[in-house]
């Protein structure tokens, strides 16, 4: 596999056959941009170190949100491109799809961002992201010994998340 695509147009990966192998990775960010959880199931290619990778993902979401709001044909209130966008202001995207992967995104009013990267042929995952948020609340936030803002180390949460993601994608 070549990183920059090479001369031919890279085709979509083959349609998923075995279920449970179609999710690539998940990110959970908190309101301060701290990556609380990064988990990968199927990621053959790494180009950056973990910290740069998280930063890039955070930046990608920020820029995309800003762009989508700028292009919104229905809303009068739109900021200038690149100027801070307030959460809740303007519209927000929930997924995008390339020929090789699909990225689904959810942000809660408390600033928790959940990102799930899956096979491009996966369907709408908005309810699944909501479900993952519920898992986060039950297994992480409700744990009195978890310090808010610290990386998630709960085995129970990670096992449950693994199982759930395997069941949806």
């Amino acid at each position: 596999m070549q990183f920059f695509g090479g001369s031919e147009i890279s085709p979509s990966p083959p349609a998923p056959t075995v279920s449970g192998n179609n999710a690539h990775m998940v990110y959970v960010f908190n309101r301060n941009g701290v990556c609380l959880l990064y988990r990968e199931w199927n990621r053959p290619l790494h180009t950056l170190n973990a910290q740069q990778d998280h930063k890039l993902m955070f930046g990608l979401l920020f820029s995309l949100k800003s762009l989508t709001a700028k292009m919104d044909p229905t809303s009068a209130e739109r900021g200038n491109l690149g100027v801070p966008q307030l959460p809740g202001q303007g519209c927000s995207f929930h997924s995008f799809r390339t020929n090789t992967y699909k990225l689904s995104f959810m942000e809660t009013p408390s600033g928790i961002k959940i990102i799930l990267v899956t096979h491009p042929r996966t369907g709408d995952l908005r309810d699944s992201l909501k479900y993952i948020y519920n898992l986060y609340v039950d297994y992480v936030m409700k744990n009195p010994l978890y310090t808010p803002g610290s990386p998630i180390r709960s085995d129970l949460f990670i096992t449950t998340l693994d199982q759930y993601v395997r069941s949806i994608a």
Partner: peptide, 22 residues
Amino acid sequence: LGRDIAPYLKIVTDTQYLAFTK
């Protein structure tokens, strides 16, 4: 995060791309 916040907002303009306030 509230929404009705424009009047209170201090915008950081020097680092355009990274100027992200919540």
